[in-house]
Nucleic acid binder design. Structure first.
Lengths: 208, 208
DNA sequence: ACCTGAACACCGTTCAAGT
DNA sequence: ACCTGAACACCGTTCAAGT
């Protein structure tokens, strides 16, 4: 079995003194800034340290390697996001289903959108290549194929085919991708597959 | 406005002679092998060239830089995938909606699953850090929060809460992520948001 | 038209020395 | 307890020389 060498991804040590906390915060801030301005490809440890106003050696006291820095940055962000989702869920305790769904999607979407540049920078911080053009080309081909298919349906016509088509494709591809990232068991993946089909069907019935 | 420096991502030149085609294929094959065995982090140009049986210089005749190699590899894969989706769409021309949805999901899912190791290796080929643990921890928190919320619904009970919960979370998060990757216009994003809500609602009604 | 591989610049990481 | 920065190993990329 193949596995990446187990690397320590958590911080080497936690800041104990006030100035150390300042240092770590400065490093995080510098990293975010550099990601926003230069992109992940030009993010170097030297540049991060320089912008944070410390030496590289100091950085390596808190993060055993560059990956751990990016990891910690994403961890911070996801922590905050999870907290907000938990809050929303509690606030809708005992509410009707429709309210829950709306609130859940709304919260997630809002957090991602209110600082869309940071969201995108973090998505890309874990990415080596700029695959935007690739995705665009792929999406165009698929949209055309599925759009033509849907338009030809024997048992339905759509008021807004393009929107329905975009939704369907985005939901399916996004779901599958996420399913892969979570490394579900075959049983769970199978169940998800069936539910996804059920969901898309009931959606199309509602959108006709 | 910030933008990554525009780098040439397409191959420097196309192979014209037979031995050149062999070279390029060997490079692709070596890259896939190394990704599967060592992971993206230990994928170096020297190693790729060595395993492909050519010199680094040769590799750089066809790929202007390492990113272009990974890019081309993903492009190849997506080309094949798009082709299969197109085929499926044509085969369901004029069919009922339910058949279309089933075939579309089935095709996509099957292609991704039949060589799951390659799928995952390619997903990770574009990724710098091993964020599996991060995703797992985040997913666990969110699952717990949304699960408790759903269980408390005033107007519904679920036969299989866990499956419904997993489906809902995976669909929402995957869709949003995909929406971000596609860089939709605000209008399109807004429409998608509403459609996603509609979809999740009609799903929950069907799954109650 | 295609291939080679030593050479170069730069980046991640360390560690002996400092406050 | 925290910080420094020169030094080292290694990787991406080039280019003069070859078939």
């Amino acid at each position: 079995m193949v596995s990446a060498s187990p690397r320590q991804l958590t911080p080497r040590k936690r800041p104990r003194q006030a100035r150390a906390t300042v240092t770590v915060d400065a490093i995080f801030e510098a990293t975010i800034q550099l990601l926003l301005v230069n992109g992940p490809h030009r993010l170097t440890t030297t540049r991060v340290a320089q912008r944070a106003g410390v030496s590289v050696g100091t950085m390596y006291q808190y993060f055993p390697h560059k990956q751990a820095l990016i990891y910690a940055l994403n961890e911070r962000y996801l922590d905050a996001l999870a907290g907000k989702i938990e809050l929303t869920c509690r606030s809708k305790h005992g509410a009707p289903l429709d309210d829950m769904v709306e609130a859940l999607i709304e919260t997630y979407w809002r957090v991602k959108t209110e600082r869309a540049d940071v969201t995108r920078a973090l998505y890309r911080s874990v990415v080596e290549i700029d695959n935007e053009a690739l995705i665009e080309a792929f999406a165009a081909r698929v949209d055309a194929a599925t759009g033509a298919m849907l338009a030809s349906a024997s048992d339905a016509t759509f008021a807004d085919l393009n929107t329905v088509n975009l939704t369907l494709v985005t939901v399916i591809f996004g779901t599958v991708r996420n399913a892969f990232e979570r490394e579900l068991t075959p049983t769970a993946a199978d169940a998800l597959h069936r539910q996804l089909t059920l969901m898309c069907r009931s959606y199309l019935r509602a959108a006709t």
